[in-house]
Structures are given as C-alpha cells and as structure tokens.
Design a binder for these strands. Sequence first.
DNA 1: TTGTACGCGTTATCAG
DNA 2: CTGATAACGCGTACAA
Lengths: 343, 343
Amino acid sequence: MGVMENNEFKKDGKRQVTMAAVGRLAGVSQVTVSRALSHPDKVSAQTLLRINDAIKVTGFVPNALAGALASKKSNLISALIPSLTNIVYATFITAFSEKLREHGYQILLSETGFEPEAEEALVATHLSRRPDAILLTGIHHSARARQMLLGAGIPIVEVWDITDSPVDMCVGFDHVEAGRRAAEFLFEQGNTRAATITAKDERAVRRQSAFANRFEYLSKGHVAESNTGGPASIRAGRDALSDLIENHGLTSGAVFCSSDLLAQGALIEAQARGIPVPQGISIMGFGDQDFARDVEPSLTTVAIDRTRLGHVTAEALLARINGTQRPKSVTDIGFEIVRRTSA
Amino acid sequence: MGVMENNEFKKDGKRQVTMAAVGRLAGVSQVTVSRALSHPDKVSAQTLLRINDAIKVTGFVPNALAGALASKKSNLISALIPSLTNIVYATFITAFSEKLREHGYQILLSETGFEPEAEEALVATHLSRRPDAILLTGIHHSARARQMLLGAGIPIVEVWDITDSPVDMCVGFDHVEAGRRAAEFLFEQGNTRAATITAKDERAVRRQSAFANRFEYLSKGHVAESNTGGPASIRAGRDALSDLIENHGLTSGAVFCSSDLLAQGALIEAQARGIPVPQGISIMGFGDQDFARDVEPSLTTVAIDRTRLGHVTAEALLARINGTQRPKSVTDIGFEIVRRTSA
DNA sequence: TTGTACGCGTTATCAG
DNA sequence: CTGATAACGCGTACAA
C-alpha cells in the first residue's frame, strides 16, 4: 500500500481530450485544429466552425505544457518577491501581473522571505518551468543564482532597487538617496534630534543607514535606532517607539520609520502615551500606502508609486522579450517626499 | 520588421542543456540521468558522482515542462483568489503555498477580482497548464467554469465558505452563522441599536444580511447599513461611519464591519469626531488581523484563523491527491468571537 | 545497475 | 487551405 496508490485522477483515468480527438470529430487533422486555435485566419470559415463546435462538444482544453515544449515559449513569467503579506509587494505584483496578463502571460509567484539563501533554491525550481522571463526583488543574489539566471538565457528584471550592474535590467529607486533626502527634509522642518525604526529588510537598513549618516552630519547629534528584528507591523511600530522612549531617552524630535505600517504603530503608541504628534514628536513613514493620508494625524512619508513600478517593470520586460529593450538597462522610478501632518 | 524580430533569447539561440547532453558528458544514457535525479538510490554511487559533476559543469536545469508532459504530473497547483492586496487572502495563500511547497508543489496564482465572470476565463487558462489540483475562492462559479473543472478530473477545493454541494471538496466556515453570532454577541453586550458597514464582497454581504436579520429580530429595531461599494480600506471605513452618522442618524449603539480594516477606519473616524469607543458607539470588526489587538482601543472582532485555513486546505488537497481523502468532503474550520475593548 | 524504444500533446516545416 | 512528418525533453515500460 504505497502512498501513490488509490489515485483516481489522471494516471490511468480517462485520457485528456487532444487536438487529434477534436480533429477526428471535425473531420480534419490535428494540425488544422492547432492552426484554428493559433492562426484562425489561415483556416477556412467552414472548417473553423466545425472545429469550434467539436471543441465545445468535447470540452477540449489545450495542453499548454505540450505547446510550450514544442514552441519553446511558455507564456509564463516567474516572479520572486520577499513577501505577499507585505502590502507593498502585493500591490506591486498585482499591477505587474495585470499588465502582463493583458499580453497573455501568466505569473508563477513565489515568496523568498528576507533570507538571501532561500532565493537560490527557488530560482532553480522556477527556471525548470522554462519561464519566458523572470523577476527578482532586490539586487543581491547568490553567485550560483546569478549563474543559473544567466545560463537560462531569458530576460531578467530586478526590482525595488537600482544598481549600475544589473544582471540584465533593473527598475526601482535609490534607497540611499531616499534615506538621505528624508534626513534633509526632517532637518529642514526644524528637527534637531532624530531616531529611526527599521524592520528586518536589507533595503530598509540601507535607507536607515543613509538617513542616520546624513542627519548626524547635519545635526551634529546622535541618531538613536530601534530595529524590529522582524517584519513590519503595528505592534512592532508600537514596541519600537516604546523602546526609543524608554531605552534611548527619546523625548522629542523626529522618528523615521522604514514603512508606513511601523509609522502607524508609532502613531498609535504616541497617542496611547499622550504624546502629541507632531508637537511632541514627529513621525515619518515610508511607502505612502493608501492609509497614510487617512490616519490621524495624516502621515508624512516617502511616496513610492508601486503601481507604476509594476507597470513600468512589466513594460520593460515585454519590450525586452521582443527585442526592443536593450540589456543592462536601468530605470529609476524615483520617489517623492509627501508632507502631511505627522512631521 | 515584425514585432517578433530581434529576439536574442531562445528561439534559435543556444539550445538548452538536456539530460542527454549531461549523459554524454558522464558517459551514460539519458535515462540514467533521469534516474539519478528522481531515484538516486537506483544508480551506482560511481555514476551518480559523474552525473552530478556533469550537471554542475553544464549548469543543467531539468525541463519540468517535458517532465510533466511525460509523467502526467505537473507538480503545479492553481490558486484563484479574489485579491492579493487584501491581507486576509494574502495570509491565507502564504500558508497554503508554504505547506504545498514542502511537498514539491508550486503555486500558479491569479487574482479573480470580485466579479464572478472573470473567474471563468482564468479557470480555462489555468487548466491549460495541467495543474495537479486547483483552488477556488468561494462556492459560486459559472456553469461553464464548473463544467471545465469537472472535466479536468483533478482535485478541486473551494475555500472561505462551505456548502453541502461542493464541486469536489470545500473548507471554510459558515458566513450566515458568523453574522448571526455577531448579532447575538452585540445584543448580549447590551446594544439595542446596530448598524453595519460592508465592503463589496459577496460573502461579506451574506454575513451582513444574517447579522441584520438576527439583530432586528432581537432588538425589534432597524439596522442601518452602509456599503462601501468597493474594497475595504481605512478611508472606506471612515467614510462609511460618516455616512451612518450623517445620513442614517447613528448616534449610539454598535457597528458591525465586514472587515477589521473597515473597523479600524471607523475607529479613526470616531476618534476624529470625538466619539468615545466603546462608550459612544461600539465597533466590531471581522477577521482578527494582526493589528486588531494592537490598535487603541483594541478591536473586538470575529477571528478567522487564516493560517490554519491555509494549512488545512493544503493538507486536504494533498490527501485527496493521493487518494486518502474522499470527494464531497466539507471541512468547517469555524470562527470565534474575540471580545476586546471596542465593543 | 543500465539502456532501448516509445509516447506525452503540441508547434514548426515543408509538401501538396 | 490542409496534411504529413519531425522535433521538443523527459518518464515509463521492458529488456539486457
């Protein structure tokens, strides 16, 4: 009694309906059925009708596996993103998928988490499906992953970051510049002290570091830092603000958070402690998620247009697939500081 | 100069590395390479080493398309969910994917939106990839979709709802019962008036309806209702509460929201208007998302264990794939009312 | 332990 | 406009 027994599906059950079967019913050969589907204009109206009838009758569903094998085109695009439950990646992938679906592509999606090692294994399994292109998040990949990617000979796009030396192409923005600009903004707002709250995310850490450097340079003071050690959440934001207050002597100034969600947590914690925002402390988020403008006080933040990022990335990939776009292309979608009331 | 030109990928470029090529390098036949990969114990240690060397040297990546075609097993599982940007579906799919990946499956994911028609087209494209199983959200599907699904002869699981007549199997909970129980809970808390805020979501509407019926029966009063007409968001929650206050004369009592996000919006709006919660009005959410316990006041809600739902669904599918699980199975994962401070 | 022969369902090529 | 025929790369008998 092996574990593979008793399987009533496939294996030996009713064989699937093939183009040949449809053809028999329509009185044509298998090839003609194939043509009727991919180049209907190359088939007489007569037989086209009979074939479509036969398809309806048999409930034929083409086998894309066989099609991909024969044509060397899978119409599949792989996407590796850190996390689906992080809304910023979810909105990005929604926009990305939408645009690609319009062009007949399906997305094979996997979460890599924030550990670089996990990505490598996923790259292999994804490549085995022979996607027509692959999307990676970030610009840091293991040597073996890079090697496999290059070997695949397909368009590759890295997103959410930019670099001078992309594997193939990349579209994103400059995190160092974003952190720096946030520091300048908060300093210009009159804050002489600042602290940071950062989630466990390589890019967030890079922004934090740029922020701290810049703000310390401008203010000649120390920037206290609290790291969540995990993904962003309201709880993490609350705890981090408590940490800054209780363990780092934070009493005034600005707090730069690595995401709007952390900022919202900090906002709630400040409220719970009776600290007025922005009068007592200022809070700045990152991302400009939908709710940023709808919380009280509304959140000052760094806007990243994730939907545009998704669309631009999809278009770049499409252009690359049909040879329009050159390799080594780098697209900076930029960011924008949005001043609201929390800072 | 057609649009398909200039394509430097695939098409005619370097042919991919095959098992045959690996075999030649290792001095064995293609079959032996295949065996070395799927049944290493059936190959001598000697040749296994040579094969693994050859694989490394050539950078061989198996072609899962060809494998699936030959074995009639794609190791692919399709998942159709309404929305990725809705955190409840995202957490569900993360749990679902995780469990299935442990068993060697990859997930082909698509968003269907909340319009039933969109699902049908997606079912077709997904089925063409010959997934080993398919997951659908909800229990309402077009006739043609049902037909195609049945014809595919693969395990099918419908989630987030239950019914006596699943296409194949379903795992979820009873939305009518959930709405009813929420009404009883709020009434027992002493609320003599109630209103609802509901997003555009068939299941949410069903809960709302059950809630209103039950609460009206218990209180002998009318339950005012505000519908967002779109997806849930903090903005939508704020607007809906304003609507209830300004257009429906809401001044006290409880508000049952179709999601925690809407409830959070209502909470913020109440705060902005200086209405104390729960003293002025009570607010109840739905879903028990992470932040529900971390906002101020903490959110009373109906807990749905989405991670468990994901795992249970994956396990049911796995069991069904290897014939352990019978068809027409219905799994009710239930729900739980969590009393916190907002109601 | 290894290899040969064949089939999976489709597309591409070339003839008619 | 239609049809043979040959790939596509791998798994599954079955044989050695």
